[in-house]
Amino acid sequence: MNHEKDQAFHEAAREALDKQESQLTPEVKRALYQARVDALQKRNQDKDSTRLWGWSLQKSLYPTGLAMAAILTMVLWLPDTGSEIVPDSTSTQFSAETLDMLSAEEDLSFYEDLEFINWLATQPEQG
Protein backbone atom coordinates (compact mmCIF):
# COMPACT_ATOMS: atom_id res chain seq x y z
CA MET A 1 0.00 0.00 0.00
CA ASN A 2 2.74 2.39 1.05
CA HIS A 3 4.81 1.32 -1.93
CA GLU A 4 1.89 2.02 -4.23
CA LYS A 5 1.42 5.43 -2.69
CA ASP A 6 5.11 6.12 -3.14
CA GLN A 7 4.88 5.12 -6.78
CA ALA A 8 1.84 7.31 -7.34
CA PHE A 9 3.58 10.20 -5.65
CA HIS A 10 6.73 9.68 -7.71
CA GLU A 11 4.66 9.65 -10.88
CA ALA A 12 2.94 12.90 -9.92
CA ALA A 13 6.29 14.48 -9.01
CA ARG A 14 7.76 13.41 -12.34
CA GLU A 15 4.84 14.92 -14.19
CA ALA A 16 5.11 18.17 -12.24
CA LEU A 17 8.84 18.44 -12.84
CA ASP A 18 8.42 17.74 -16.56
CA LYS A 19 5.87 20.49 -16.65
CA GLN A 20 8.27 22.88 -14.97
CA GLU A 21 10.98 21.97 -17.46
CA SER A 22 8.70 22.58 -20.41
CA GLN A 23 7.97 26.04 -19.06
CA LEU A 24 11.54 27.28 -19.10
CA THR A 25 11.71 30.85 -20.34
CA PRO A 26 13.08 31.58 -23.81
CA GLU A 27 16.00 33.41 -22.19
CA VAL A 28 16.97 30.33 -20.22
CA LYS A 29 16.55 28.09 -23.28
CA ARG A 30 18.73 30.43 -25.30
CA ALA A 31 21.36 30.51 -22.57
CA LEU A 32 21.39 26.71 -22.38
CA TYR A 33 21.71 26.43 -26.15
CA GLN A 34 24.59 28.91 -26.10
CA ALA A 35 26.26 27.02 -23.25
CA ARG A 36 26.05 23.80 -25.28
CA VAL A 37 27.45 25.43 -28.42
CA ASP A 38 30.29 27.01 -26.44
CA ALA A 39 31.14 23.69 -24.79
CA LEU A 40 31.26 21.87 -28.13
CA GLN A 41 33.30 24.66 -29.72
CA LYS A 42 35.76 24.48 -26.87
CA ARG A 43 36.24 20.79 -27.53
CA ASN A 44 36.83 21.46 -31.22
CA GLN A 45 39.31 24.22 -30.36
CA ASP A 46 41.14 21.86 -28.01
CA LYS A 47 41.22 19.22 -30.73
CA ASP A 48 42.50 21.74 -33.28
CA SER A 49 45.19 23.01 -30.95
CA THR A 50 46.25 19.45 -30.16
CA ARG A 51 46.37 18.65 -33.87
CA LEU A 52 48.29 21.88 -34.60
CA TRP A 53 50.70 21.19 -31.78
CA GLY A 54 51.22 17.67 -33.06
CA TRP A 55 51.72 18.94 -36.60
CA SER A 56 54.26 21.59 -35.56
CA LEU A 57 55.97 19.05 -33.36
CA GLN A 58 56.19 16.68 -36.32
CA LYS A 59 57.37 19.51 -38.51
CA SER A 60 60.22 20.38 -36.16
CA LEU A 61 60.99 16.84 -35.08
CA TYR A 62 61.26 15.24 -38.50
CA PRO A 63 64.27 17.30 -39.71
CA THR A 64 65.91 17.04 -36.29
CA GLY A 65 65.33 13.31 -36.26
CA LEU A 66 66.71 12.91 -39.75
CA ALA A 67 69.80 14.95 -38.86
CA MET A 68 70.36 12.89 -35.71
CA ALA A 69 69.96 9.66 -37.67
CA ALA A 70 72.49 10.87 -40.25
CA ILE A 71 75.00 11.82 -37.56
CA LEU A 72 74.52 8.51 -35.81
CA THR A 73 75.00 6.65 -39.05
CA MET A 74 78.21 8.56 -39.75
CA VAL A 75 79.52 7.94 -36.26
CA LEU A 76 78.82 4.23 -36.49
CA TRP A 77 79.94 3.85 -40.07
CA LEU A 78 83.07 6.02 -40.25
CA PRO A 79 85.26 4.13 -37.77
CA ASP A 80 84.67 0.97 -39.77
CA THR A 81 85.80 2.48 -43.06
CA GLY A 82 88.19 5.24 -42.01
CA SER A 83 90.29 3.50 -39.44
CA GLU A 84 90.51 -0.07 -40.47
CA ILE A 85 92.44 -2.17 -38.02
CA VAL A 86 95.90 -2.59 -39.43
CA PRO A 87 97.85 -5.31 -37.79
CA ASP A 88 100.64 -3.77 -35.79
CA SER A 89 103.64 -5.94 -36.60
CA THR A 90 105.72 -4.56 -33.73
CA SER A 91 103.10 -5.18 -31.14
CA THR A 92 102.26 -8.65 -32.41
CA GLN A 93 105.93 -9.47 -32.63
CA PHE A 94 106.44 -8.22 -29.12
CA SER A 95 103.52 -10.25 -27.91
CA ALA A 96 104.89 -13.39 -29.56
CA GLU A 97 108.30 -12.82 -28.07
CA THR A 98 106.84 -12.19 -24.64
CA LEU A 99 104.79 -15.33 -24.93
CA ASP A 100 107.91 -17.25 -25.93
CA MET A 101 109.83 -15.92 -22.97
CA LEU A 102 107.09 -16.76 -20.54
CA SER A 103 106.60 -20.27 -21.82
CA ALA A 104 110.31 -21.08 -22.16
CA GLU A 105 112.20 -22.75 -19.43
CA GLU A 106 115.46 -20.82 -19.90
CA ASP A 107 116.75 -18.49 -17.27
CA LEU A 108 115.51 -14.92 -17.55
CA SER A 109 119.08 -13.64 -17.47
CA PHE A 110 119.58 -15.32 -20.84
CA TYR A 111 116.96 -13.07 -22.32
CA GLU A 112 118.55 -10.00 -20.71
CA ASP A 113 121.84 -10.99 -22.36
CA LEU A 114 120.02 -11.65 -25.61
CA GLU A 115 119.10 -8.01 -25.84
CA PHE A 116 122.75 -7.10 -25.48
CA ILE A 117 123.77 -9.69 -28.07
CA ASN A 118 121.28 -8.27 -30.54
CA TRP A 119 122.61 -4.80 -29.98
CA LEU A 120 126.15 -6.01 -30.39
CA ALA A 121 125.29 -7.67 -33.68
CA THR A 122 124.01 -4.41 -35.10
CA GLN A 123 127.26 -2.55 -34.34
CA PRO A 124 129.66 -2.23 -37.26
CA GLU A 125 132.77 -4.19 -36.89
CA GLN A 126 135.62 -2.12 -35.57
CA GLY A 127 139.14 -2.83 -36.01
Binding site: A35, A39, K42, R43
Partner: peptide, 10 residues
Protein backbone atom coordinates in the same frame (compact mmCIF):
# COMPACT_ATOMS: atom_id res chain seq x y z
CA UNK B 1 25.39 23.56 -16.24
CA UNK B 2 27.83 25.25 -18.62
CA UNK B 3 30.85 24.20 -16.55
CA UNK B 4 29.52 20.65 -16.43
CA UNK B 5 29.01 20.58 -20.20
CA UNK B 6 32.52 21.87 -20.84
CA UNK B 7 34.01 19.35 -18.43
CA UNK B 8 32.15 16.47 -20.08
CA UNK B 9 33.01 17.37 -23.66
CA UNK B 10 36.66 18.19 -22.99
Amino acid sequence: VQESMISLVT
